[in-house]
């Protein structure tokens, strides 16, 4: 079987000049004709933007596309597969398994989920202590208002009762000052992993991300029909995921400013003082809650194939879609 190679649509791919393997020709043509509509002008201008290297791949190599890099062990190739002996090796499947999320990222993602939940919940138990609206000292910090005018105070009493928060302060302190280490270490390992594996380049936004994010948001609200091209994440995802990582760092820094406001007083002072640091810590928590709601909604809308990839790492894709594994190889 002869495979052709097409260049993927993202700038990074064009720049590094290394092709993705094994796109069957018809799909390659298809993908490219689509790609050519989406190329930005700079990449076309340098004469390299769209090229097609008619490199014939050996059969075994081209079957990598079934499961990038792992075809030998996984034998997802028709003909190689004992369970499908009748199939001719000359028929390539229209779909393949793409390695979407590395194992380490999946573990860290799922560890973070209950740990962040624990931090938010235990933080709420601690914060209840300063929410004594019914008595003499309504809290000054956790509110929306200017000067003496207050629009909203966090939180109303029905909310506290629903959360069973009253008088669980020491429980909150216990959980918070234990799981803060898990949250911090897991988060730091995640950032280090993305840096050293190169995965950061899927996540960190670039110049186009904001425009893409707007297009994606318009599409989500059915105000537009076109979607910009993407590899692993679209512009909105890049901005959201990068923001939430920065917010995590912010929670660690504001947390330290609250935890050690004397010994680390320069951090507290830089953040605007003790009360401001507490307010910022709280606001970031609200941000995590908002992120969580949108994230879960989007995951539900994106469907099973996408959700499953955060557990198994693999996503079923039409063969002509850009391969993430090929892009990873292109990082060198």
């Amino acid at each position: 079987m002869l495979s052709l190679v097409h260049r993927p649509s993202m700038d990074e791919r064009e720049d590094n000049g290394r092709p993705a393997h094994g796109q069957p020709l018809a799909e390659a043509k298809n993908a490219i004709s689509q790609t050519s509509n989406l190329q930005n002008t700079s990449s076309q201008a340098d004469g390299e933007g769209i090229s097609l290297d008619p490199v014939a791949q050996p059969l075994a190599k081209s079957t990598d596309t079934l499961l990038e890099g792992n075809s030998a062990t996984l034998s997802a190739v028709p003909g190689d597969t004992p369970t499908a002996p009748a199939e001719t090796p000359l028929v390539s499947p229209r779909i393949r398994l793409d390695k979407k999320h590395p194992l380490a990222i999946r573990w860290m993602h799922w560890i973070n989920f209950p740990v962040l939940f624990t931090m938010i919940w235990s933080g709420l138990l601690i914060y209840w202590n300063d929410s004594d609206n019914a008595y003499k000292h309504p809290h000054a910090v956790y509110r929306i208002g200017v000067g003496p005018f207050t629009l909203v105070r966090f939180f109303p009493e029905w909310f506290w009762k629903a959360m069973n928060a009253p008088y669980h302060v020491t429980q909150g302190l216990g959980y918070h000052f234990f799981f803060m280490w898990v949250f911090a270490i897991n988060g730091i390992l995640y950032v280090l992993f993305t840096i050293f594996s190169g995965e950061w380049s899927f996540v960190v936004p670039d110049r186009k991300s904001l425009k893409e994010a707007i297009q994606v948001t318009l599409k989500d609200f059915h105000l537009s029909k076109t979607l910009p091209p993407q590899t692993k994440y679209n512009g909105a995802q890049k901005i959201a995921y990068t923001s939430v990582i920065v917010m995590g760092m912010g929670s660690l820094i504001t947390g330290l400013a609250i935890y050690k406001p004397t010994q680390a007083h320069w951090v507290t002072t830089l953040l605007g003082g003790y009360e401001m640091a507490r307010w910022e810590h709280f606001l970031l928590t609200m941000g995590f809650c908002g992120f969580f709601l949108i994230h879960v909604t989007q995951v539900v809308l994106a469907g099973w194939n996408n959700f499953r990839s955060m557990v198994s790492g693999l996503e079923v894709k039409p063969v002509e879609e850009p391969s993430l594994e090929a892009e990873r190889r292109s990082w060198g």
Binding site: L74, V91, P93, V316
Partner: peptide, 12 residues
Amino acid sequence: QDAADAAVLRES
């Protein structure tokens, strides 16, 4: 063709 695709899904 369907058999080829089914093999991928089985693997998945």
